[in-house]
Design a protein around this nucleic acid. Structure first.
Length: 202
DNA sequence: GCGCCGATTGGCT
DNA sequence: GCCAATCGGCGCC
């Protein structure tokens, strides 16, 4: 094989593992949205939600309803929901089908289509384009349209970084939740300037 | 049916 | 640091 391989979309097997493992290994991968004008960003912050045994998970105690149906789908499925009635949040389902565990995308380093992102976000500062789960969905035009779609076949794909492994990461408690708030399931690229605000000072 | 609350954000004190 | 905006799901009983 050639030494210059092209990065490929992450296979289903990548997601068929515990969410905390996937959350860690998603750091450094590239999210490419072809919903409208092409935009892309590198993942710098994620959170794992562990499904039926995680009080903070939408799949806690196997609660199923129309809104979170995608969460119970096969690994590699997008789960997109509306937060606080205003902001979309994008997750990738992990583990076996029915387990309802997933990884929330919390922040990206903007890589492509920054001008499009600025228009969609209504801001000019690069730091404010994708530094939050709601922000990155707006920048990449991610809405309910993506909910339930398999990543590989959807308008928003995730590409692995060939060669280099994930960058050094810091693990912290999850942000903005009240239940199981102390569980160390948030993963942040070390010293990245692109993470969401609210990073614990520590 | 009603009221509360949330995996957020941005503007204001 | 505090808080309103805004809407869908949930528990209530």
């Amino acid at each position: 094989m050639s030494s210059t391989r092209r990065a490929a979309t992450l296979p289903v097997a990548f997601f068929d593992r515990p969410a905390e493992i996937v959350a860690r290994e998603l750091l450094g991968t590239l999210v490419v949205s072809t919903a409208g004008s092409r935009t892309a960003g590198r993942i710098v912050e994620t959170e794992a939600y562990l499904g039926r045994d995680d009080p903070a998970s939408h799949g806690y105690r196997n609660r199923r309803h129309a809104r979170n149906e995608a969460l119970f789908g096969p690994p590699g499925t997008w789960y997109v929901y509306l937060s606080y009635g205003m902001h979309w949040c994008a997750n990738l389902v992990c583990g076996a089908e029915g387990q309802a565990s997933a990884v929330l995308l919390r922040a990206l380093e903007p890589v492509n289509g920054l001008e499009t992102m600025r228009e969609r976000r209504g801001v000019t500062a690069d730091r404010q384009l994708c530094s939050g789960p709601g922000q990155l969905c707006q920048a990449l035009a991610i809405t309910r349209d993506l909910d339930g779609a398999l990543m590989e076949r959807s308008a928003v794909k995730v590409f692995g970084s060939e060669g280099a492994g994930p960058p050094p990461a810091v693990v912290t408690p999850r942000i903005g939740i009240t239940k199981a708030a102390d569980w160390p399931l948030r993963f942040v690229v070390e010293a990245s300037p692109w993470t969401s605000r609210g990073v614990p000072a520590q």
